[in-house]
Design a protein around this nucleic acid. Structure first.
Lengths: 179, 179
DNA sequence: GGGTGTGAAACCTTTCACAGCT
DNA sequence: AGCTGTGAAAGGTTTCACACCC
């Protein structure tokens, strides 16, 4: 039975051991006094809390370079997430594979989302196509969207949008970078 | 002379007006009492503080789908940032363009970085190539690296690394997403 | 001994309230 | 009157110190 202590975790993440214990204690008494945390049960508890214990089915809209890169991104095809379809309006791409992901015609979005029982989507379309794509995703029951298009899109009551702006980490580097 | 008040900014960013004023006051008295902030001078002050007043010259290592997508990403070719070269070890890609970015042979990394006077780099190589690529970038004077490879790389005293893990926003969506 | 869980103290951030400038 | 800048109060988070359990 593998164990881990708050000190080991603290070392790993550059935090204090007290911080680790306080945070974990928020969700119950996961640890055993004098012993530490059982790795298996800790992982299970946290996965359940973060809803990573079930596999989320994801579609990617826009199979340009970004969409294709994300379809192949190993962390998007793991225990918790599975990319089940890609979509593009370019007929030349339809029918091809990107990694293990089949590219569908964007016109079939509603049909394929329903067939695949997808609940999450990644938007990787040009800025001008982002709003209309989001509307279609909302309408066919997608509840979470990760948006890579360079426009900020709003969440709604039925669909949470998270906007990824890759300029922000680059600006952080410019600010903190070695001078 | 365009002006803006802390209330307007607060509305824009969903913050309180006091928050805006306290934060800006950290860096000096940018505003004018009874009037507000002059947009031009506020932008200039903040750009200078964040070191976004000069153009940072960026190279991209690894011109697969992710590297190519980033080379074309409009926000990486703006006032503050300019992608000046791409690199790949695949001879078939060398000499091609991705957007306005010319792809060089990875063997010429040191030469081209010096010629182009680049100071920042984006790593978009497979996991197994990440560590050695970072070592070469550090050795040729790159001071900031944005790492998209799916491994966490450490900063050093001469080179700050920022690791981008796209699984994190996806996990946030899984957790907060509409149930 | 060793390591968790936790009240209390220290520390930091946000909000309030208002003086002061245009 | 209108809006910034800021000391003081309120609120929240991190660290400390130690009781408690294996």
């Amino acid at each position: 039975m593998a164990r881990v202590s708050s000190q080991q975790l603290a070392g790993e993440f550059n935090l204090s051991s007290t911080q680790i214990r306080k945070d974990l204690a928020q969700f119950g008494e996961f640890g055993v006094r004098g012993v530490g945390y059982d790795v298996g049960s800790l992982v299970a508890h946290l996965a359940s809390l973060l809803r990573l214990d079930l596999t989320h089915r994801v579609v990617i809209v826009g199979m340009g370079n970004m969409g294709t890169a994300l379809a192949r991104y190993p962390q998007f095809n793991s225990e918790s997430f599975q990319v089940v379809a890609g979509f593009d309006s370019d007929a030349a791409k339809v029918g091809r594979q990107a990694g293990r992901v089949l590219i569908h015609d964007l016109r079939d979005l509603e049909k394929v989302v329903a067939e695949q029982r997808a609940t999450m989507a990644i938007l990787a379309v040009p800025a001008e196509a982002a709003t209309s794509s989001l509307a279609r995703l909302e309408a066919c029951g997608i509840t979470s969207v990760l948006n890579f298009a360079p426009v900020s899109l709003p969440s709604s009551s039925t669909c949470r949008v998270k906007n990824v702006d890759l300029r922000i980490p680059l600006e952080e580097l410019a600010f903190f970078g070695v001078s």
